[in-house]
C-alpha cells in the first residue's frame, strides 16, 4: 500500500528554519535555471523568488498556526491575489519582480523533485497490471477533456472571442 499518511508534528522554530533553508535552495536552483533558459537577470529573479517564498512561508505557517481546517494552498492563493491586486500599493513592485521568474522555470525545478520522489512508487507501480494502467490513462484524459470541453462550450456560449 502506498505510504500516504504519516503522523504529524507541531510547528517548531527548528521546523520554520528547515522550511526557509529549503526555499532558499529551491530559489537558487530556480534562478539559475531561469537565467539559463530565459536570460532574466539573476538579481531581479532572486527578488522575485524571495517574494514567492515569503508568500509560501506565510501560507504554510498560517495553516499550522490558525485553528481552522484550511489548507495552505488557500492562504497562499489569497496572499498572492491580494499582493498583485490592481491598485494595491504592493502590486507594481510584486508584479515587476515576480514577472522576472518564468512559471516554467519553477515548474522545471519542481518536477525534478517530483521525478526523484516518484521513483519511490516504482516497485508498487510494477506490481499493478496493464489493465490498471489503461484505466489510469483514460481517467486522466477524461478529466482533462471533460473540463476543457465544458469550458470551451461555456466560453463560446457566453461570447468570449477566441484571442
Amino acid at each position: 500500500m502506498p505510504d500516504l499518511i504519516d503522523g504529524s508534528e507541531n510547528v517548531t522554530v527548528h521546523g520554520i528554519f528547515n522550511w526557509i533553508l529549503l526555499l532558499v535552495i529551491f530559489s537558487i536552483i530556480t534562478v539559475i535555471g531561469n537565467n539559463l533558459g530565459y536570460k532574466h537577470p539573476m538579481t531581479d529573479s532572486l527578488v522575485g523568488m524571495g517574494i514567492l517564498s515569503l508568500i509560501t512561508l506565510a501560507g504554510v505557517w498560517l495553516e499550522r498556526y490558525l485553528p481552522f481546517n484550511v489548507s495552505s494552498i488557500l492562504y497562499i492563493s489569497i496572499f498572492g491575489i491580494i499582493l498583485a491586486f490592481p491598485g494595491m500599493p504592493t502590486s507594481d513592485f510584486v508584479l515587476y519582480y515576480v514577472s522576472k521568474v518564468e512559471l516554467l522555470s519553477i515548474v522545471t525545478v519542481f518536477l525534478a523533485y517530483v521525478g526523484i520522489g516518484m521513483g519511490k512508487s516504482w516497485d508498487e507501480f510494477k506490481a499493478l497490471g496493464w489493465r490498471a494502467v489503461v484505466i489510469t490513462i483514460l481517467v486522466i484524459a477524461a478529466t482533462y477533456y471533460g473540463a476543457a470541453i465544458v469550458a470551451h462550450i461555456v466560453l463560446v456560449l457566453t461570447g468570449v472571442p477566441a484571442v
Binding site: L52, T56, L57, S72, S77, I78, G80, I106, V109, F110
Partner: peptide, 10 residues
Amino acid sequence: FIGVLIAKLA
C-alpha cells in the same frame, strides 16, 4: 515547493 508554484499562479 508546491506553495511557490501556487504563489506564482496567484
